[in-house]
């Protein structure tokens, strides 16, 4: 695995994590969390953990984002922090 590539993805990963925790609109936070999961999946694929990456692509970027959006839809969209 190429460490420069690794570093770029890790940089994006930290940005996505900060954004999803900072943004006050919970729908945006859920979508950015989906991006975070997808970047994580890329990183694992690059590390050679293809099974883990596949699971994360299906579960993290797919199912858990849908669950978060479903909850945000049926509760409140604005967050205080």
């Amino acid at each position: 695995m190429i460490w420069q590539f690794n570093l770029i993805i890790l940089g994006f990963l930290i940005m996505a994590a900060i954004m999803s925790l900072k943004v006050t609109d919970l729908l945006s936070a859920s979508m950015i969390f989906g991006i975070y999961s997808f970047l994580m999946c890329l990183l694992w694929a690059a590390m050679g953990a293809v099974d883990v990456a596949f699971t994360e692509a299906a579960v993290g970027a797919g199912a858990s984002t849908v669950f978060l959006v479903a909850t945000v839809y049926s509760t409140k969209r604005k967050s205080s922090d």
Binding site: S20, L21, L26, L68, S80, D81
Partner: peptide, 8 residues
């Protein structure tokens, strides 16, 4: 303080 933020 937001519970969904805690879960994220």
């Amino acid at each position: 303080k937001n519970l969904i933020k805690k879960l994220i």
